[in-house]
Design a protein around this nucleic acid. Structure first.
Lengths: 124, 124
DNA sequence: GTAAACGCTCACACCAACGTCAAGGTCAAG
DNA sequence: CTTGACCTTGACGTTGGTGTGAGCGTTTAC
């Protein structure tokens, strides 16, 4: 299939697919006229990338997962490199959460000082 | 005082001070030679901006606080506009925390699936 | 007098993941 | 033969807060 069809079926833009190729994530063979040609397996690669991005991974983070799928594994998770990324990202997320919680406390303190009557409750 | 001295005393770069001026936050009068001239009060303005940035506020967010100080209030917190920003930022932070926690859960689930033996504990 | 230190105004560079034009080639339907 | 949908590469724009350098004028200390 060509880029437009893959884009539609995978739910991304053609521009995004070209970007992934630039980054070396999705390799397409070329037809005689220069058009990119993809196969069914590429849909899974894109899906893997998008699901990782949905939880805040960068394209760089996604690289081992894609490599794992291309290596023939049933899941992009099945390689030790992927597991390592998961662990690293988990630590990053935890650090971000802690930083945010600290900021929240600081802001809440300032708000209380600025407006003693203001109710401060966690937003639902 | 000139920009270099304010930069040193406030702990920011001269470039940052020029940027704040571009954004309309810190207004400097000009000496005959074109040099910016600041006074003691400007140190407080910069300090206010930096303390807000330290908890994730943008320069745009800091605007009401600076205006409040320039209006003669003892604290940049003392104006209703500032309080409103605090409340808005608090809601934003809460939303970010919730999003991060959701992502963490998702990543932890994937990690568990990828590597059942891997211990998943919150990073200290 | 001169050199160091300081100031000025542009204006590009950075990071991430694309969006969005520009300017054009390819191909099937009518 | 032309329209229109599709494809190509290239390159700038987005967001925020500066860093960095160019190229030039000013002040200050010796």
């Amino acid at each position: 299939m060509r880029i437009g069809e893959l884009a539609r079926r995978a739910g991304v833009s053609a521009r995004a697919l070209r970007h992934y190729e630039e980054q070396g994530l999705i390799l397409a063979r070329r037809a005689a006229n220069g058009y990119r040609e993809y196969d069914e397996a590429d849909i899974r690669l894109v899906a893997q990338i998008r699901s990782l991005m949905a939880v805040g991974f960068t394209l760089e983070d996604a690289r081992p997962f894609v490599a794992c799928l291309r290596a023939g594994h049933a899941s992009g998770n099945a390689c030790p490199e992927s597991v390592a990324v998961y662990q690293r990202k988990l630590a990053e997320i935890d650090a971000e959460i802690q930083a945010l919680v600290a900021r929240r406390t600081e802001v809440a303190t300032q708000l209380k000082q600025a407006c003693p009557g203001c109710a401060i409750r966690r937003t639902q």
